[in-house]
């Protein structure tokens, strides 16, 4: 690796330059958005500033949403529903997936029986079963939670299985030669060993779950940002839709950043 290290003069200088370039990138995105908004009629697209101000104005109260009788009268209330569902779904699904995946990796027969099914399930659009869930479980707040949990379980089971497989066998062997019991080996060696890789899966699951939850909500839910989008798109309120999309993106970015910060704290040994 050393062989290709090229000399770059003034590293602190280049760091400032990097930050400036990144800021320029944000500017490019906003500029492009604004330009398109100028070119297109407001019924199709509004500029970033209009979307943000719509978000601020209707965060606590939106007449349209109150009209449809949701308990939450603004975007903020809808967001609470969505965030809660995603967190609960990913947490439940993540736990099932990790426990199941690690167990599968350590039991040859069960794994041989289930791995192809698991891999195949990972390739299919889980979203396609949402209509069935709506019929079975009704328009309830937990219907979309089930969908998110199912998706997360399938994904994380695969990540956990691969992580447990990739963990060098000598780690567990060493614990064994030290006389560690099964429980100790799992808690002290296996779990810390597979966690970093599982975190990658958790990030993927979380990132995709926002969309899954929101879309599931548009199909049928008592609240949530997806229902908000549905109501707004019935009245062709592009400004409102953009505001909600921005809100979802902001929440997704924030939660991802929090997860990474927690990971840095947990996995300092990496």
């Amino acid at each position: 690796m050393q062989a290709a290290s090229t000399v770059r003069a003034g590293n602190s200088h280049s760091r400032v330059r990097g930050i400036l370039l990144r800021l320029a990138g944000v500017g490019v995105l906003l500029g492009f958005w604004q330009l398109m908004a100028v070119l297109l009629p407001p019924s199709r697209l509004v500029g970033p500033w209009n979307a943000v101000s719509d978000l601020v104005h209707h965060y606590n109260n939106d007449p349209l949403i109150s009209f449809f009788g949701f308990s939450a009268a603004g975007y903020g209330g809808l967001m609470y529903f969505t965030v809660r569902n995603v967190i609960v779904g990913v947490a439940v699904g993540g736990l099932c997936g990790v426990v199941g995946g690690v167990a599968l990796a350590r039991t040859e027969r069960t794994r041989a029986a289930t791995e192809p099914a698991l891999v195949t399930l990972g390739t299919v659009p889980i979203l396609a079963v949402m209509p069935l869930f709506v019929i079975w479980f009704g328009v309830a707040s937990y219907t979309s939670v089930i969908l998110v949990a199912l998706y997360t379980t399938i994904l994380l089971a695969q990540y956990a299985m691969r992580a447990a497989e990739n963990l060098p066998p000598i780690y567990e062997a060493r614990a064994k030669t030290c006389g560690a019991r099964m429980g100790t080996r799992v808690i002290r060696v296996l779990v810390p060993g597979v966690m970093p890789e599982i975190l990658g899966g958790l990030r993927v699951a979380l990132a995709f779950s926002w969309g899954l939850e929101v879309f599931a909500e548009t199909l049928g839910a008592p609240s949530g940002l997806g229902q908000g989008i549905q109501i707004l798109s019935n009245t062709d309120n592009v400004q409102g839709i953009l505001a909600i999309v921005l809100l979802i993106a902001a929440v997704a970015l924030l939660v991802d950043a929090l997860l990474m910060a927690a990971a840095r704290l947990l996995f300092r040994w990496r």
Binding site: Q2, A3, A4, S5
Partner: peptide, 8 residues
């Protein structure tokens, strides 16, 4: 690396 030209 200097002789190779990978590093100036």
């Amino acid at each position: 690396n200097v002789v190779a030209g990978l590093v100036e």
